[in-house]
């Protein structure tokens, strides 16, 4: 029993990061139909900038805030400089643009922050909490709470606020949204700012547990992408669930089957789900217009 609890703890800890990345994917996808493969770099920057500012002597909360604001600004810049000019480009071009952005950010981070691995202190100490013979770090609770809070905020935003509905309207039909007076450019900018901020928040919360280095982004991006697709791209509920599911599948496979093939099992599950539900668990249905 205590083993199972430990596996679940491991799964939700990792899953929380994947969920935060997947949520970031969702927002941008909703506003622009773009899957931003540089999402993982936002996580990396969140951790790296916080470490850098903290090392420079700033208190941790301030350092984290700076990291989130700077990353958010970078998200906006990316939208203005790379995504908006490419509007209407085919999916494969957009994939290459965002992967190009990811490689560019990685290369820059390597020059600015160096190649070393970094970390900063956990928010509430390193003493594990014991539950039923298993242990979880206080920082893991921060991560899980972060993922849930972001989800809740997004859900409220998309369903209860005018602006949030404007984003959804833009997602469904850009032209129609423009016709009813929605400033779709602003919606795009906003979604990149939000998405980058969420990614950075993920980095801030996760770094005391996972550590960070300039190259960690692509791994998070792939797992988050997988989580978002599993849940159904564009749906915050799907992203949250998909992220946690991938984390849990990995941990349970490692615990009960084979640690060698834990990533493989995650992808087999995705393939199976997509086979029966080609839009993922909660994806929106689309029809082809002639």
């Amino acid at each position: 029993m205590s083993e199972l609890i430990q596996f679940l703890f491991s799964g939700v800890t990792v899953g929380a990061v994947y969920a935060l990345v997947a949520l970031g994917f969702t927002i941008i996808y909703n506003a622009s139909d773009v899957v931003n493969f540089a999402q993982g770099e936002f996580v990396m920057l969140g951790g790296m900038i916080t470490w850098f500012a903290h090392e420079a002597g700033l208190p941790l909360p301030l350092a984290a805030l700076i990291a989130i604001v700077l990353t958010s600004a970078l998200g906006v810049a990316m939208n203005k400089l790379a995504i908006e000019p490419a509007r209407g480009a085919p999916v494969v071009s957009l994939i290459i643009i965002t992967i190009g952005a990811s490689i560019f950010i990685q290369g820059t981070a390597q020059l600015v922050f160096g190649k070393q691995i970094h970390t900063f202190p956990a928010f509430s100490g390193d003493t594990p909490i014991h539950v039923g013979g298993a242990t979880i770090l206080p920082q893991s609770l921060w991560m899980i709470a972060g993922a849930l809070a972001v989800f809740l905020a997004l859900w409220l935003f998309f369903s209860r606020t005018l602006l949030g509905r404007a984003v959804m309207a833009t997602a469904n039909n850009r032209l129609a949204a423009q016709l009813v007076g929605i400033n779709t450019n602003f919606v795009m900018t906003l979604s990149f700012a939000l998405s980058a901020a969420i990614g950075a928040l993920g980095g801030v919360l996760a770094t005391p547990v996972t550590l960070t280095a300039y190259g960690v982004g692509i791994g998070f991006a792939l797992k988050g992408f997988a989580g978002a697709m599993l849940g159904g791209m564009g749906n915050p509920k799907g992203a949250l669930l998909g992220g946690f599911l991938i984390g849990l599948i990995e941990a349970l496979t490692a615990g009960y089957l084979s640690s060698q093939y834990k990533d493989a099992v995650a992808f087999v599950v995705i393939l199976l789900v997509l086979f029966f539900l080609p839009q993922g668990l909660f994806g929106r249905k689309t029809t082809d217009r002639v």
Partner: peptide
Amino acid sequence: DETYDPKDSDMTAQLTKIRG
């Protein structure tokens, strides 16, 4: 005999298995 991916951020599952 356990393994982990170099990109993994939590190996408590494997360690728990070893402990057991």
